[in-house]
Amino acid sequence: MSQTLCHPPCQGDQLVVTTLVRNGTPRLGLRAVLSDAPSVGEVRHCGDWREVEDALGAGRVDVLLLHEDDYVRDRGVLAGVRRRRPKLLLLLSSDDVREEILAGPPVPDGFLVEDELTASAVEDALQRTLAGEVPMPTSVTRGLLDRLRESGQHRPREVSLTARENEVLLLLAEGMSNKQIARRLGISSHGVKRIVASLLLKLGAPNRTAAVVTAIQNGLITC
């Protein structure tokens, strides 16, 4: 049975979040951290996909937060849900991302890891997901690198990046936001956005997560 929690006072500019996390331990942890997230005004915790559909049909939903098990098991249902355009934030059991998740579609808009599930991590992930920045914890990037090194699955192709694009790409792989990258490199956030857009085009990637994965697969990120 779904449960809707509104954090009074529920302001119009606060986020409406719907969750589907059926594993008991992470579900309880997620409820606790979402209740402390200052940007969240309403949360509907669903027990199955029918309740998710009901929540989406009942009104505005900004972010759909799923456990990776539900994403993998019910991707066909998810395709219909995604047509309604909530951002998709995926909760991973560990930093070892399953290949079918990275293959998509749909590619998640951001990631959280159960072991790193804190109020600040959730708040940061929500804000960056809505900003289109695709948060990927550093531990997830490292896990991808380790897996590709062990399997030898690099697929080198000719991709010509400028020195600045390489700098931004490495910082994306560290999970930095546009503002953090701008501060690190001493350039404007608008300049970072332009460089990220160029990276997506050159790598043929739909978003930042896919760009990092493609860069790893092609040996552009090796450490």
Rank of each mutant, 00 (worst) to 15 (best):
L64E: 03
L65M: 15
E68G: 00
D69N: 04
D70A: 02
D70M: 01
Y71P: 01
V72G: 00
D74Y: 08
D74F: 06
D74V: 00
D74P: 00
R75C: 05
R75D: 03
G76V: 14
L78E: 02
G80W: 04
V81L: 05
V81F: 00
R82E: 01
R83N: 01
R84P: 03
R84V: 07
R85V: 11
R85Y: 12
K87W: 02
L91C: 11
L91K: 05
S93P: 00
S93M: 02
S93I: 04
S94H: 14
R98N: 09
E100Y: 04
E100D: 14
I101H: 14
I101P: 13
I101R: 13
I101G: 13
L102A: 12
L102R: 10
A103L: 05
G104M: 09
P105Y: 10
P106I: 01
P108M: 06
P108Y: 08
D109A: 09
D109N: 14
D109C: 10
G110D: 07
L112V: 07
L112M: 04
L112H: 03
V113Q: 04
V113M: 04
E114N: 09
E114K: 15
L117F: 09
T118Q: 03
A119F: 07
A119Q: 14
S120I: 13
S120G: 11
A121C: 12
A121F: 07
A121K: 08
E123S: 15
R128L: 02
R128F: 02
R128M: 01
T129C: 02
T129D: 07
A131S: 07
G132V: 12
E133M: 04
V134H: 15
M136C: 05
P137Q: 13
P137T: 14
P137I: 14
S139M: 04
G143S: 10
L144Y: 04
L144A: 07
L145Q: 07
R147Y: 09
R147S: 11
S151M: 05
S151K: 14
G152Q: 08
Q153T: 09
Q153K: 13
R155D: 10
R155H: 11
R155Q: 13
P156G: 03
R157F: 03
V159W: 11
V159L: 10
S160I: 06
L161H: 00
L161P: 00
E165P: 03
E165V: 02
N166K: 06
N166A: 06
E167V: 08
V168C: 10
V168P: 10
V168R: 05
V168F: 06
L170I: 02
L170N: 15
L170W: 07
L172T: 09
L172D: 08
